[in-house]
């Protein structure tokens, strides 16, 4: 491609990727920004003041959303590592079916199961509880963790584990000193995606949380729906912060080899 044309294409791509953040950022400090003004009449820290205040509940929602996403991630790892090991290391009858079952929740829209899930969780007394929401988030999250770990284990040499064991290491020592270091990069990539998938859930949280488990996307929507663009902008920026931070810290994990793993992930 002609270098100038390439530069133009690259600029267009970069611009398109950044564009939707711009009005959100400006709105978050705007006081009075009506058509046809290209820039707000006045700037104000009021929306941020509200979003960051102790009583508005936005920060509580932030903490709650982090708590739910972290819990979901840890649970998914505890369950997904063994399952990934089975899928990655062994060939067995019915493996295709098991894979399909583990993959299904990642491809089937949440809406397909949310009504039935709501009915079950109501009877279990889980609707309106944080625990119920975490459990519900496992449904879209677990497939990713399992498949990422399956990919990791398919390149894993169990010979090292055997050696360690023959040298007298306990199973816990083997896992701690041999298995874990080998799977750690893949595990971190899987954990990153698990966190982000839980972090962005809307419908499952709305239905299973019964409105009472107010994660950030729910708070965000309640201001977007009432036309408070300034507060919406501030909360939206808060909401993308952890993803941005994680990316800056871990970007090397989702480039290169582990990006191949993304191939099994949902958008």
């Amino acid at each position: 491609m002609h270098p100038r044309l390439r530069l133009l294409a690259a600029l267009a791509l970069a611009g398109w990727l950044v564009l939707p953040f711009l009005p959100l950022a400006v709105w978050s400090v705007a006081h009075g920004w009506r058509f046809p003004d290209l820039w707000p009449r006045a700037l104000s820290g009021k929306a941020w003041g509200y979003a960051l205040s102790d009583t508005a509940g936005v920060l509580d929602s932030f903490a709650l959303t982090v708590f739910i996403a972290l819990s979901t991630t840890v649970l998914a790892a505890l369950v997904g590592i063994p399952a990934g090991r089975a899928l990655g290391l062994y060939r067995f009858r019915g493996k295709g079916l098991v894979t399909a079952l583990l993959l299904a929740p990642a491809i089937l829209p949440g809406l397909a199961i949310v009504f039935g899930l709501h009915g079950i969780f109501l009877r279990l007394g889980l609707v309106g509880t944080t625990g119920g929401v975490i459990l519900a988030h496992l449904i879209p999250v677990l497939p990713y963790m399992t498949l990422v770990m399956a990919a990791v284990f398919s390149a894993f040499d169990t010979g090292y584990e055997d050696q360690a064991r023959s040298l007298g290491a306990s199973p816990a020592q083997v896992f701690r000193h041999v298995t874990l270091p080998a799977i750690l990069p893949g595990l971190l990539a899987g954990a990153l995606f698990a966190f982000l998938i839980s972090w962005s859930q809307y419908l499952l949280t709305l239905a299973i949380g019964g409105g009472r488990v107010q994660t950030l996307p729910l708070v965000l929507y309640s201001f977007a729906a009432s036309g408070r663009n300034d507060i919406t902008g501030a909360i939206a920026l808060l909401y993308i912060l952890p993803g941005l931070l994680i990316l800056v810290v871990t970007s090397r994990w989702i480039t290169g080899r582990s990006a191949a793993v993304v191939g099994t992930l949902r958008p």
Partner: peptide, 14 residues
Amino acid sequence: QLNLTIPHIVGAIG
């Protein structure tokens, strides 16, 4: 990569 971390609802409002 950044875009991958953005929840759909934020993009929709943008």
